[in-house]
Deep mutational scan, measured.
Amino acid sequence: MISLIAALAVDRVIGMENAMPWNLPADLAWFKRNTLNKPVIMGRHTWESIGRPLPGRKNIILSSQPGTDDRVTWVKSVDEAIAACGDVPEIMVIGGGRVYEQFLPKAQKLYLTHIDAEVEGDTHFPDYEPDDWESVFSEFHDADAQNSHSYCFEILERR
């Protein structure tokens, strides 16, 4: 099963200049909980913004210009990325925008964090048809001392 995991502000903004323009430790914990011990696929820009392999996960970098870091697996196509994951129950696609666009048609599940923030962004989550998805989990949280904005975790499964 292919799943996408993303944090989205208003207007589906997911990033600005290779960074997330908010401070939500709870979302980072949600991300870790849902990706640990699963292969993660990301684009080169996302890889560069993280700066290191995510521990406890097979890191697969999709790029037309593969790098030389041998701590991760470099691939040039969506099919190659899927094959590099091996026989696993769930593959997690973690961004960025172009990689989400490439995998959305193949995805069966979306793990979304909806952030109540209007922020400037240069990267967006692809538009998706809500009628194609069923919400199977939703959990709202107010902003607090650690988390700069209110947010809602949601899991959607393709109908």
Rank of each mutant, 00 (worst) to 15 (best):
H124E: 04
E134Q: 11
Q102L: 15
N34T: 04
A7I: 03
A7L: 00
D122K: 00
Q146G: 09
I82W: 11
V99S: 11
H45F: 03
G51P: 12
P53T: 10
K38G: 09
D70E: 08
M16V: 13
S3M: 00
D79N: 07
C85Y: 15
W74N: 09
P89S: 07
S64I: 11
D131K: 04
D144H: 06
R52P: 11
A117E: 08
A107C: 07
I155H: 06
W74G: 06
S135N: 15
L28G: 01
H114S: 15
V78H: 13
W47N: 05
S3N: 13
F125G: 12
E154S: 15
M16N: 01
R12T: 03
T73R: 09
L104R: 02
L36C: 02
V78M: 08
R158M: 07
I60Q: 02
D70Q: 12
M20E: 01
G121N: 00
F31R: 00
P25E: 04
D142S: 10
Y128D: 04
R12E: 14
E118D: 06
R44E: 02
H124Y: 03
E80T: 11
F140Q: 12
D127S: 13
P66Y: 11
C85L: 15
P66N: 09
H141N: 05
H149C: 04
I5G: 02
D69T: 06
E101S: 07
E80V: 09
H141L: 06
K109V: 09
N59S: 10
V78P: 14
Y151V: 14
Q146V: 07
D116R: 15
A29W: 04
L54G: 00
F137D: 10
Y100G: 00
P25S: 07
F103P: 02
E120G: 13
F103V: 10
W74D: 03
I94S: 03
V10Q: 01
P126I: 15
N37W: 09
R12Q: 13
Y111G: 02
Y100M: 03
L36W: 05
D11M: 04
H124F: 02
R52H: 07
Y151P: 02
K58N: 13
N23S: 04
D144M: 04
C152H: 14
I60W: 05
A143Q: 06
H45N: 09
M20P: 01
C152L: 12
